[in-house]
Simulated scan of single mutants.
Amino acid sequence: MASVLQVAGVAALWFVLFSLNDWAFGYLDQAHVISWVFLPAALRLLGVLLFGRWAALGLFLGALATNGTAFGHSMAQSVSVAALSGLGALGALHLTTRILQVPPTLRGLTAGRLAVFAVVGALCNVIPHNLFFWAVGLQPNPFVGLVPMFIGDLAGIVIVLYGLRGVLLLIERRMRVRTP
């Protein structure tokens, strides 16, 4: 039951972050598939850190729900892009935890290691997506979207992480004020 809630929660959060991103940063989109700020990238990072493969499934379902008309009427392209969202995040988790020797409990995950994971996660997302967009003719070459998508993923991760940090600090302050 917990895995169903994890999948559903990640998918729902993807939808919320995607909608918020479209509202706040939609004007920064390059083409219809790349954004200079992409808030859901943070969910890729945090979701797989917390829930592993269940988060990857939630990322897939959330991306599938938000692909909309970005790929015309091609269900195959929509499913492929959704799969890349989940699989790239999962690949980044496995690669980074091995390189940094972070155990599955995430003990020892420092801010520096989290930053490395964010960069590896962005690369594991950006490279396959851009190769796919080029292969199906959505981009003229595989390099045109690398920089904007990489910056967009990192910007989204930073915005969400600092936003969460701010919320946690506010909660902590309120808890201290209420404690006699």
Rank of each mutant, 00 (worst) to 15 (best):
A24I: 15
A41S: 12
I34L: 09
L109V: 07
L61S: 09
A92I: 08
D22V: 07
L100I: 07
A111Q: 12
H94R: 09
S78W: 12
F60E: 03
H32Q: 13
N67S: 15
S85F: 11
H32V: 08
G72C: 00
L109S: 01
A83F: 14
P104R: 06
L43D: 01
L49Y: 14
S35R: 03
Q77I: 08
L95S: 03
G72Q: 03
W54S: 06
A65G: 10
S78N: 02
T96G: 06
M75Q: 13
R107A: 09
G68S: 03
G47Y: 11
A63R: 04
G72S: 06
L90T: 00
H32N: 15
A70L: 11
L49I: 09
R53W: 15
L39C: 10
L61M: 12
G112Y: 04
L59W: 10
S74N: 07
D22L: 10
H94M: 02
G88N: 03
H94C: 08
L28D: 11
A92H: 14
T97K: 08
T96N: 01
G47R: 00
T105E: 06
V37R: 05
N21G: 06
S85L: 09
L114R: 12
R98A: 03
G26N: 03
G58K: 06
L90W: 15
R113D: 00
R44I: 11
G72W: 11
S35P: 09
H94K: 07
H73C: 04
L87D: 08
V81P: 05
N67P: 06
V33P: 06
F38A: 00
M75H: 11
R53L: 14
R53A: 14
T69Q: 10
S78I: 00
S35M: 08
G91Q: 00
Y27W: 15
L46R: 00
V102T: 01
A63G: 06
L28G: 04
G26P: 12
H73N: 10
W54R: 04
R44D: 02
Q30C: 11
W54E: 04
S35F: 12
L109T: 00
Y27D: 14
G88E: 02
D29F: 12
T66A: 08
S80R: 09
A76Y: 13
L84M: 13
I99M: 10
W23F: 13
A31N: 14
G108P: 03
G58Q: 07
G58F: 05
G68K: 02
L114W: 10
N21Y: 07
A41Q: 08
A31T: 04
N21A: 03
W36T: 15
G88Q: 03
H94V: 00
A55K: 01
A41L: 09
L84F: 12
T69S: 10
L49D: 06
V81R: 02
R44K: 02
G62P: 15
L64H: 11
W36I: 14
D29T: 08
G72V: 10
F51Y: 11
L45Y: 12
H94E: 06
I34E: 02
L50T: 13
L100T: 08
A82Q: 02
A55G: 01
F60C: 10
T97R: 12
H94P: 13
F25S: 01
V33K: 03
L87G: 02
L93C: 00
L109C: 05
R44F: 12
A65R: 01
L61P: 13
A42N: 10
G26E: 05
